[in-house]
Amino acid sequence: MLANVLLKTLRDQGRVLLAWAVSLALIVATYAAIWPSVKSQPSMSDFIDQMPEAFRSLFATSSADMSTPTGYIQVELLSFMGPIAVLIYAISAGAGSIGGEEDRHTMDLLLGNPVGRGRVVVDKFFAMVLGTFLLAAVIGLSLVIEGNMADLVLPPDKVAAAMLHLALLGVVFGSLALGLSASTGRTGLSRGIPAVLAVLAYIVNALAPLVEAFRRIQKASPFYQYVGQDPLRKGPAWDSVLVSALTIAVLLALAVAGFRRRDVAG
């Protein structure tokens, strides 16, 4: 088992992933249960329309119509709760992948097996990716299954597209956390920096329509790749998927290089 770092990591994260999955399914169930009361209150959409543009821009899309299932989910789930949950998991998994082993003094035992450092990083990366995509899939399946029970009907293909973009958002910042963890071995730093950058990326994307300086760099924000082309309405944006995938590949390569060149504390 130790020789297969991927399986070991997934085994170690099994209970955590189960807890995350159950919690996310319950959160979606809560939103689905509230939907019937929201759709009967057209004043909710009017309230959002009357908000200052700066506040409306903080939602997944400023044109979201709360009286429709798509608009409701965009505002209530995909603007804040969904990204926050996936980012917390992915960043924590990435930061703990290498630094966590060192904090627990298990890295010497792991590297004492017939696995190279590059293999350790790659397997840890794939464990983080699988966990992140699993949680996104739980959210998507819950939206379709639980939503149908509450007349919150969403096209399954559009939900799948939105979850693909959501998972990639998490993996981008999870890969950054992994890279910092592999290069420094410091879990606190590896969590803190990606978290701060995620907030900044969110602000840049949200306020780009209002701030000229942000507009110029908006497409560099991972949050633009997440919601910039509205996948819940339009389906997957493959150019954004490609940008996210390339970003992840670069961060993974840097993580492997960083781990190979430094001294490792057991």
Rank of each mutant, 00 (worst) to 15 (best):
G188L: 09
R11Y: 13
V28T: 08
R233T: 13
P236M: 10
A237I: 04
Q74N: 09
Q41W: 08
K158Q: 10
S62W: 10
V38L: 14
A25K: 07
Q225E: 09
A25L: 08
Q74M: 07
A90Q: 02
I91D: 04
G174D: 06
D46A: 14
P222W: 04
Y72I: 01
L17A: 08
A177R: 03
F125C: 00
H105A: 12
M81E: 12
S97L: 05
R215T: 11
K234G: 06
S57K: 13
F59W: 13
S181V: 04
M1W: 05
A161K: 04
I139L: 11
L58A: 03
L251R: 01
P36S: 05
L189P: 09
V241R: 02
N205M: 08
N113H: 15
L111F: 12
A161M: 10
S221K: 02
I34G: 03
G179N: 09
F223K: 03
M44S: 15
L134T: 10
L18S: 09
S221T: 04
S240D: 10
K8P: 00
K234F: 15
A253P: 05
L251N: 02
G179H: 11
I139N: 01
R117W: 13
D263E: 15
A85P: 00
A93I: 05
K8F: 14
A32D: 06
L154I: 14
S244P: 02
A95Q: 06
L17W: 12
